[in-house]
Amino acid sequence: MSVKAKKHLGQHFLRDENIAKKIADTLSLEGYQNVLEIGPGMGVLTKYLLQKDITTYVIEIDSESVEYLQANYLNLAPRIIEKDFLKYDLNDIFKGEPLAIIGNFPYNISSQIVFKTLEMRNQIPEFSGMFQKEVAQRICANEGNKIYGILSVLTQAFYDAEYLFTVPPSVFNPPPKVDSGVLRLTRKENYKLPCDEVLFFKIVKTAFQQRRKTLRNSLKTLDLSDNLKANVIFGQRPEQLKVQEFIELTQMIEADKK
């Protein structure tokens, strides 16, 4: 029995054992005892995770894949979660314990997986997996690059992001139309921002929604004082600012609102 890839779930099953092992080996296994694989499909990556000295859980929305895993990975069966990762409260199982996230992520929800990870950053010290190459590059991009944006700034505020290697379409069934890229996120030692984190998210998202405009124009809705807007930083466009400068900008706006 094998599972048929479903287009509406964005499934592309990895067939290359070497690449699966290489992805499993991106985890350091430091600072957590549990790992959660998202979208395991037929378990090509799962089998290498199960060889490690760690407790592996998988979360899978596709009932056909769940049946396959239950039949072929008997020791994993109690730790198969048949849920939608984006809608599921992980603390039903992990109860606040730290965990790593890994997976060959469905392209259509990969950015949302990162955003959910950022919401749970207190619990997720490490994250690695496969994305559409362009999305992986965007997450790891530096300022001054046209692909640098919301995902880059928000992720890199809390995690060190490394683009690890590229994977060709030919190793998947069915082959996607684009290359894939594997990245690793390692949470920063001090990942609490020295500013209002909710305001930081809002500023980054608002700035990049009109990325061609200067911050003076794109942040108009925040109702800033003329005195503050006279600062030289407001003459720049969002893609010119380093992550640290977005943090400083948030501190300035916080002070301005007092």
Results as ranks from 00 to 15, higher is better:
P98C: 03
F246G: 02
L183A: 00
G31W: 08
A100Y: 04
D16F: 04
L228D: 01
K202Y: 00
L219D: 00
V178L: 07
E30Y: 03
Q209A: 12
E197V: 13
K202D: 00
V232Y: 12
K7R: 15
S63C: 06
S128D: 03
F234T: 12
E126C: 05
A136N: 04
Q70E: 14
R79K: 15
T250Y: 06
K47W: 04
K7T: 02
F234L: 07
E60D: 10
V232C: 01
L224A: 00
E60W: 07
T26S: 14
K192N: 14
P174R: 14
D179M: 14
L9S: 10
L215N: 08
N227R: 15
H8K: 15
S180I: 06
L76S: 03
K83G: 03
G31F: 05
D256A: 05
F200K: 06
T155D: 01
K146E: 13
K205S: 12
K95D: 07
A20T: 09
E17M: 09
A207C: 08
D223M: 08
L199I: 09
G96S: 08
Q137W: 03
E248Q: 14
K213P: 01
V3F: 09
T46N: 06
V243W: 03
V35Y: 08
S180K: 10
N18H: 09
D92K: 15
M42Q: 14
D89L: 09
F115D: 08
L219A: 03
